[in-house]
Structure formats: structure tokens, C-alpha cells
């Protein structure tokens, strides 16, 4: 992962060096080779993602006993339920704020890291990557111990300094913030490492040129760093948003949706109605609820990334 930013340039259009005679055959040949090289990927995706995905969408359009096709009825039904509206709000709050915070802190960390000499970066990077390396279910378990209301290590620390205990997971807002905090803690290192790679790939000449033009630190950031990192920021934010919207472990382990369903997110709610209460189609509908919105968002983000890539390549 020496150079994450390079993803930005990944869509360079095929460079046609020679365009006549026997080279044509070579081109065709090259496409064939390329297709062959991609075929394992496509096979894997077709068999293990596309088919299951279509099946899942079909599943979400059945009635409870899976005997009848009901179209979008499950979605309409969900939208009418107060509990589910709460779930939408909480999922959006969780995913959006967690991603924004992760991106911001990751950005800051990447800059701090970029400031120190490269020789020393290794150890700091290693330390900061620890949260990302521990399996999420495991570390969430540890957070749960830390928050655990009857014997919370955080509360113990608060009490030592004379502050009253906090019911971390016992009230809606503290519990929601705890969930977000755990997700940010887990996901920030990923952003940091991606942004650091991007920073390193910004040509030093650009900064020098900016400096000659009299640009200060803020201007360098606004007119050099950010534009150069736009693609990587888009991609990481998009990817993280999708993954965070699907997060299950954190909420399941910390609160299981409580208190009063005020911390449920799509995945945990889907588990409750789909698997536990035996209504698999409804559970599938819950899981797929964000699909159209995220798909549209992803489409535009990726289109912009492609466009910028072409501009750079041109």
C-alpha cells in the first residue's frame, strides 16, 4: 500500500500508441489478455456476489412466509413504522458522523505524520494502526467492558477525579455517541494510512511552485493538497460510508439496540426482525433500505473520480 493516492489515476484511458496494421491485432490481443486476467475476479464476483445480491433483492420482495411476491410492500410497511424511522435516523447519524470524524481525524493524523522525518514514522504508524488490526468484534467487547455501567473502568477514572458516573450505554444519547466513538477509533487508522500515502505522492515541486507564488500554509492546503487528494478522499469516504452503514458488531455487542430501540441501526434491526423474529424478507428489506441511496451516491462519486482521472491523464 505504498501509494494509495494512485487509485486516483487508476482510470487512465487505454493508451493507444500505434493505431494501424498489425498493431491492431496486437491491440485486440491485448484486450483479450486483459479480459482473461480479469476473469477470475469476474467469476468470483458473479458467483459469490452478484447472484446472492439478486437473490437478496428478490428475497426482500416476498411476504413473510416467502410464498408470495409482494413487490415493494415490505419497504412501504417499514416506512410507516415509528421504530423503523428511528432506525433510519440512527443509522444515518451513526454512519455520517462516524465517517466525517474518521476522515477528519485521519486527515489531521496524516499531516502530523507527514511532518515528522520518514525514519521515525514507522513506529508511530505501527502504534496508530493497532485499533485497525484488532478484530472489531474483539475490540468492541473490550469497549463494552470499559463502558459497562456497573463496573465501568471509565467511570472509575471519572470518580477518581471527582466526577459523577455516566450511564454510558443506558441512555439514548450517550449510547449513540459511544457507538460513534468506537467506530471512529476503529476506522481512523485506515483513513490515516490512505491519506498519508496520498500526501507522500503529492509532488514537492507543486508546493515549491506555490511557495514561489507566495502561498501560505492554508493556501497550500487549499490549492495544492486538497485538490491532489480529492480522489482519494472521495473513494475512502464512499467506501467507509458503505461499510459503516452495514456495521453490525458494534451496536450488537454494545447495546443490542437498546435502550428502547434508540441505538438500533439497519444491520442490528434486520437481525432482530429477520433472523430472530423469523421474517427473513422483512429483514432483507431493512438491510437493503439504503441500497438505492448509496448506489446513486456511489455512482456520482465514482463518475467524478473517473472524470478527474481523465483530466489528470489528459
Amino acid at each position: 500500500m505504498a501509494d494509495g493516492s494512485s487509485m486516483a489515476i487508476s482510470f487512465a484511458p487505454p493508451r493507444r500508441i500505434v493505431r494501424h496494421g498489425s498493431m491492431h491485432r496486437l491491440m485486440r490481443h491485448r484486450s483479450t489478455v486483459a479480459l482473461l486476467m480479469c476473469s477470475p475476479l469476474f467469476l468470483l464476483i458473479a458467483g459469490l456476489v452478484v447472484y446472492p445480491a439478486i437473490y437478496a433483492i428478490y428475497l426482500s420482495m416476498l411476504n413473510k412466509n416467502m410464498t408470495e411476491f409482494v413487490g415493494l410492500h415490505n419497504f412501504a410497511f417499514l416506512l410507516k413504522r415509528d421504530t423503523f424511522r428511528l432506525v433510519i435516523f440512527q443509522s444515518c447519524l451513526f454512519a455520517v458522523s462516524a465517517v466525517v470524524l474518521k476522515a477528519f481525524i485521519g486527515f489531521v493524523l496524516a499531516h502530523l505524520m507527514h511532518n515528522i522525518p520518514s525514519g521515525r514514522q514507522r513506529i508511530w504508524r505501527g502504534l496508530l494502526l493497532v485499533p485497525w488490526v484488532i478484530p472489531l468484534a474483539l475490540s468492541t467487547l473490550c469497549w463494552w467492558w470499559l463502558f459497562d455501567p456497573s463496573y465501568s473502568a471509565f467511570n472509575y477514572a471519572l470518580n477518581v477525579f471527582g466526577f459523577p458516573s455516566v450511564a454510558w450505554l443506558g441512555e439514548a444519547w450517550p449510547a449513540r455517541l459511544c457507538m460513534i466513538a468506537v467506530n471512529v477509533w476503529f476506522g481512523t487508522p485506515f483513513f490515516m494510512i490512505m491519506y498519508l500515502a496520498a500526501l507522500k505522492s503529492v509532488p514537492e515541486q507543486l508546493y515549491e511552485a506555490a511557495a514561489i507564488d507566495g502561498a501560505g500554509a492554508i493556501q497550500k492546503m487549499l490549492f495544492v493538497t486538497l485538490p491532489m487528494m480529492r480522489n482519494i478522499i472521495s473513494i475512502t469516504v464512499l467506501f467507509s460510508l458503505i461499510v459503516t452503514f452495514a456495521n453490525f458488531d458494534i451496536v450488537r455487542i454494545l447495546t443490542n439496540g437498546g435502550p428502547e430501540s434508540k441505538t438500533h441501526v439497519f444491520a442490528t434491526y434486520a437481525f432482530q426482525v429477520g433472523i430472530q423474529s423469523g421474517n427473513i424478507p422483512l429483514g432483507a428489506s431493512v438491510s437493503l433500505f439504503m441500497f438505492p441511496l448509496l448506489a446513486v451516491f456511489a455512482f456520482f462519486v465514482l463518475r467524478n473520480v473517473n472524470r478527474r482521472t481523465k483530466e489528470i491523464a489528459a
Binding site: D148, P149, S150, Y151, A167, W168, G170, N256, G258, P259
Partner: peptide, 21 residues
């Protein structure tokens, strides 16, 4: 009930008893 009753899961009550609380 304990202050944290709303955030109880199936392990919380066990621990409440075992810890003597």
C-alpha cells in the same frame, strides 16, 4: 432497579449476582 437496568443484557444480571452487588 440498578441504574444501568436498561442497558442490561443476559450477562449483566449474572455479573451483578456474582460480584455481590
Amino acid at each position: 432497579l440498578p441504574k444501568d437496568a436498561v442497558s442490561y443484557d443476559d450477562a449483566s444480571n449474572n455479573r451483578a449476582l456474582i460480584s455481590g452487588q
